[in-house]
Amino acid sequence: MYEKTYPEKRFGITLEFLKTHAPPPAQILDLGVENPFSKLLSKEGYSIENTKGQDLDLDQSQLKASSAEITTAFEIFEHLLSPLEVLKSLQSEYLFASIPLKLWFAKAYQSKTDPWDRHYHEFEQWQFDWLLDKAGWDILASKSFTHPVNKIGIRPVLRLFTPRYYLVFCKRKSA
């Protein structure tokens, strides 16, 4: 159904999950600048509006002004200092989000070349669930999956069966 390589495996699982719970056409606010996955969503029939690269910790104006029925946030919340404020600022009724899970055998990710590409949070599943609940979201469905790498060693073997990504479909709680 999808390629077993990165990022095709992750894209395939995420797209299948999204289509299962919110088939196209749907209007989506995608947190993050235009990227290969948001382009794929457009090709699949979704109407995509991306955020403009603003620092979402400091500027949630686009989130508050959006009329999209769905917000997607794929591998975004780990880069934010205050994901709670961003989650509370969303105006959509539904949220699809994914995060890399904290791995006991690996340090938090920090790019050696890009000062903005770092993880301030690497959640355990229960922590992300708690954050979503506190921000006013009910989880309707979830899925976790592995991320094998083509390397030799103990950590690559552990990645064969240790879930690396966690994907959720949420609905805003009733007031």
Rank of each mutant, 00 (worst) to 15 (best):
M1H: 08
Y6G: 02
E8L: 10
E8V: 01
G12S: 03
L15M: 06
L15T: 02
E16M: 12
E16A: 15
F17L: 06
H21W: 10
A22L: 09
A22W: 09
A26Q: 13
I28H: 04
I28K: 04
D30H: 11
L31D: 02
V33G: 08
N35Q: 13
N35Y: 06
P36R: 12
P36Y: 10
F37C: 03
F37P: 00
S38M: 05
S38W: 02
S38H: 04
K39N: 15
K39F: 12
L40T: 11
L40D: 05
K43R: 15
S47P: 07
I48A: 05
K52N: 14
G53I: 00
L56W: 00
D57M: 00
Q60V: 01
S61E: 06
S61P: 05
Q62S: 11
Q62W: 01
A65M: 08
A65F: 04
S66T: 10
S67K: 13
A68G: 14
E69G: 15
I70A: 03
I70R: 03
T71P: 09
T72V: 03
T72G: 06
T72S: 12
F74H: 04
E75D: 09
I76Y: 00
F77Q: 02
F77Y: 05
H79G: 00
H79E: 01
L80M: 06
L81I: 15
P83V: 03
L84E: 08
L84F: 12
L84Q: 09
L84Y: 10
E85P: 06
V86C: 04
S92F: 05
S92H: 05
L95M: 04
F96A: 05
A97M: 07
A97W: 02
S98Q: 02
S98A: 07
P100N: 11
P100K: 06
L101S: 00
L103K: 14
L103G: 10
W104K: 13
Q110F: 13
S111I: 08
S111H: 11
K112C: 09
K112E: 10
T113V: 15
T113R: 13
D114M: 07
D114F: 09
P115V: 14
P115D: 12
W116N: 12
W116C: 11
W116M: 11
D117S: 04
D117G: 03
H121P: 01
E122P: 04
E124V: 15
Q125E: 15
W130T: 12
L131F: 07
L131W: 07
L132A: 03
L132M: 04
D133F: 14
D138H: 13
I139M: 05
L140F: 06
S142C: 10
S144Y: 09
F145I: 03
T146D: 12
H147V: 05
H147W: 08
P148E: 06
P148K: 05
P148R: 05
N150V: 14
K151Q: 14
K151W: 14
K151T: 09
G153E: 07
R155F: 12
P156N: 10
P156T: 08
V157E: 12
L160R: 15
L160W: 13
L160A: 10
F161R: 07
P163A: 06
R164V: 07
R164E: 10
Y165E: 06
Y165H: 10
Y166D: 03
F169T: 01
C170K: 01
K171S: 11
K173P: 07
S174C: 10
